[in-house]
Amino acid sequence: MIQTTLINTMTLHSLTTSVPMLLALQLSHFSAAVIFALFASIVFGISFRSDPRDMVRHGAYCFAMFLGLMMLAAWVMRFLHR
């Protein structure tokens, strides 16, 4: 048991020291999701519509749906967690 714990600790230590975490960009889950939604919506709007006005509308719709569903999923998980 002690040996297993020691090995796990050493493995974790070797993993964390081999990764240069000091330079890593740290985004919160929310900000990462918002940036993801923004860029995905831009490409969706351009790719799935032909008219420029429809592209903007579809992009905005996708962005709103991303954020809305994200909020909904977050609240559902919050209530399920209780």
């Binding site: 990764v19 240069p20 890593a24 960009l25 985004l27 940036i35 860029f39 831009i42 490409v43 351009i46």
Partner: peptide, 20 residues
């Protein structure tokens, strides 16, 4: 359209790299 796609994809890839 090309510039928007370029900015979107390259930025996402770069942010992914920046987050290790």
């Amino acid at each position: 359209r090309g510039l928007l796609i370029m900015v979107s994809v390259i930025t996402m890839f770069s942010l992914g790299m920046a987050m290790n």
